[in-house]
Computed example of a mutant assay.
Amino acid sequence: MLIVDAIATLLGGALLLRFWMQAIRVRPPSSVAQFTFQLSDWLVRPLRRVVPGVGGYDWASLIGAFLIVLLATSVLFVAGWTVHAVLMQALQRFLQWILYGFMALLVVEAIFSWVNPHAPLAPFVRALNEPLLSPLRRVVPLVGNLDLSLLVALILLQIAQLVLGMLFSGL
């Protein structure tokens, strides 16, 4: 189960990253683009025939990520789970992947800002985080020239994780 989970998380993460990059119109560095597209093209290209991009969003990538988590979660059928329970578990894990992905991007940006703010990937990661951080920067003031919006975003994402856990524990 651990190997299936690790592979599913890697594939799902690549698909979610692909969706997010296209949703916010961020051009990735060639190394990131090559990794992401090579890892996910086998699923996205066939899905695009069925699910076209609408409104500027790459729905095939997002649906592909959900299909990956659903496939990985379907192992629970063996344990006797019902279809409804497996679907709810897959939805919860999918939403957790999204929240953990945002958290990871924020942590990477914090590390870049401390270690090497001029690293080649730093502007890319900053651009990926900008839609999350810009609304917070309007509300959270600088404290001694220190931008705490990143910390606030991490706390809000953790609260979202807790709420998600509570929502799905009652189902």
Rank of each mutant, 00 (worst) to 15 (best):
Q92G: 05
M88P: 02
V78N: 06
L99K: 07
M103G: 15
L106G: 13
A110I: 01
V75K: 12
F77G: 05
A104G: 14
Y100W: 14
F77T: 03
W81L: 11
L76E: 15
A72P: 12
Y100A: 10
L70G: 09
W114F: 07
W97K: 10
L91A: 14
I111Q: 00
A85Q: 15
Q89W: 03
A85D: 15
T82A: 06
A79D: 14
H84V: 12
Q92M: 11
W97L: 15
R93L: 14
F94N: 02
E109M: 11
Q96F: 09
L70W: 12
Q92S: 11
Q89P: 00
L87V: 08
L71K: 07
T82G: 13
L99Y: 08
A72V: 03
V75I: 15
G101N: 03
Q89H: 04
F94C: 03
L95S: 08
Y100G: 05
G101K: 04
V107T: 03
T73N: 12
A85L: 11
V108K: 04
A79V: 10
M103V: 07
S74G: 12
S74L: 09
M103S: 11
G80I: 02
H84Y: 10
L76D: 15
V83F: 13
A72N: 13
F94D: 01
L95H: 03
V107C: 01
V107I: 04
S74M: 10
A110P: 00
I111D: 00
V107K: 02
I111T: 01
L106K: 11
W81E: 10
R93V: 06
I98V: 15
T73I: 00
L105F: 12
W81Y: 10
V86Y: 09
A79Q: 14
V108Y: 04
L71E: 01
I98P: 08
L76Y: 15
L91M: 12
T82P: 13
M103F: 10
L99A: 13
H84S: 13
I111E: 01
F102G: 05
M103Y: 05
F94I: 00
A110T: 03
F112T: 02
L87E: 04
T73R: 12
V108M: 08
A85V: 04
L95N: 05
A104E: 01
W97H: 14
Q92L: 08
V75N: 06
Q96T: 12
L106C: 07
W97N: 12
W81D: 13
Y100M: 13
F112H: 14
F94W: 14
V78M: 06
Q89F: 04
Q96I: 10
T82E: 09
W114V: 05
G80N: 08
G80M: 07
V86P: 11
M103L: 12
L106P: 14
L71C: 12
R93I: 04
Q89Y: 04
S113D: 01
V86I: 10
